[in-house]
């Protein structure tokens, strides 16, 4: 944990350089207590007062804000940027070792003549995956989350500012290997792609439903190992459908290349969707009165 304040998120490092996310810097993460202020008339709706009204009376404030509000707001900004620049962004999610980096390396090899690409790598420690990506010649940023178990929209925002992102290109985000909480954090991606390898068992959609619920595509990886493991492909798909009816599924082998063509076609289609999309004007309409 951070020695200054005991927080975990300060440990996020981008290529070994400590990342002080600006939302935190601005909003006093360091738990300084707010000095007492002269109490004014409360602006909030005061539902009930437990003491007689007056200075420093206890009061109840209705807040009604989602805890992920800040992440979602940043994700929206990221998404606006990507869509304005026609960048297809794929967030790759799976438990550790399902083959995300292997798939990325082989996908990049197939596509690098056709599309400008970049990669954001998320891991708790090391830049081993970034090195594997860099060997392909594609720009990559490694984020180390320290004890953090997921990427969030602010980390992605910081990383994307350090990457050469080309209009009409493709950005891959390899999330921290974890089938649980990365599901809750919108990064502003175009699609969430979930990998499940056949050595993990077909019951994972039932055990980790959130991940399969938010997925836009399920890749069943390591199909070359099917003869050696007891994995019922149909059953896995049925379980995934319970959580997410109609979820597109592609089975492939990232190492041997079987099924890769279908995956590349899927990317192609998604890329056309982004390129063809009319960018909605999000700026508020201004009414000129006189």
């Amino acid at each position: 944990m951070c020695t200054t304040c005991g927080c975990s998120t300060h440990k996020a490092r981008i290529f070994g350089v400590s990342d002080t996310p600006h939302h935190r810097a601005q909003t006093r993460l360091h738990y300084r207590s707010i000095p007492p202020q002269t109490v004014q008339e409360p602006q909030a709706v005061t539902l009930s007062a437990t003491h007689a009204p007056g200075m420093n009376a206890k009061r109840i404030l209705r807040i009604e804000r989602d805890i992920l509000t800040q992440n979602d707001a940043q994700a929206r900004q990221n998404r606006d940027y990507f869509s304005k620049h026609h960048i297809l962004v794929l967030n790759l999610l799976s438990s550790p070792g399902s083959g995300k980096t292997t798939l990325l390396v082989n996908t990049i090899r197939k596509l690098r003549e056709r599309l400008p690409m970049a990669v954001i790598e998320g891991d708790q420690q090391t830049d081993r995956d970034a090195k594997r990506i860099r060997a392909t010649g594609v720009p990559v940023i490694q984020i180390n989350t320290g004890k953090g178990c997921h990427l969030d929209a602010h980390m992605v925002n910081r990383a994307m500012q350090q990457l050469p992102l080309q209009d009409g290109g493709l950005l891959f985000i390899e999330n921290v290997g974890n089938l649980v909480c990365p599901a809750s954090f919108d990064l502003g991606e175009t699609h969430k792609v979930v990998l499940l390898s056949v050595t993990e068992g077909e019951d994972k959609p039932l055990k980790y439903p959130d991940m399969f619920h938010v997925a836009h595509l399920l890749l069943l990886n390591k199909c070359d190992l099917l003869p050696y493991v007891d994995f019922d492909m149909d059953q896995a798909v049925q379980y995934a459908y319970r959580i997410h009816p109609g979820l597109p599924v592609i089975s492939l082998s990232a190492t041997l290349g079987e099924g890769m063509a279908t995956w590349l076609d899927w990317i192609e289609t998604a890329h056309q969707g982004v390129a063809g999309k009319q960018v909605p004007d999000t700026s508020p309409a201004v009414l000129q009165l006189d």
């Binding site: 927080c7 975990s8 998120t9 909003t27 006093r28 993460l29 738990y31 707010i34 000095p35 007492p36 202020q37 109490v39 004014q40 409360p42 602006q43 909030a44 009061r59 404030l61 807040i63 804000r65 805890i67 992920l68 509000t69 800040q70 992440n71 004890k147 953090g148 178990c149 997921h150 969030d152 649980v180 909480c181």
Partner: peptide, 24 residues
């Protein structure tokens, strides 16, 4: 550790509310 960052979010939202609505 996921709950740690959620707890941080909660505190941050409380502190924002404290500034906007003047409580200490």
């Amino acid at each position: 550790m996921h709950e740690m960052s959620l707890a941080e979010n909660v505190l941050q939202m409380i502190e924002e509310a404290a500034q906007a609505q003047h409580f200490s």
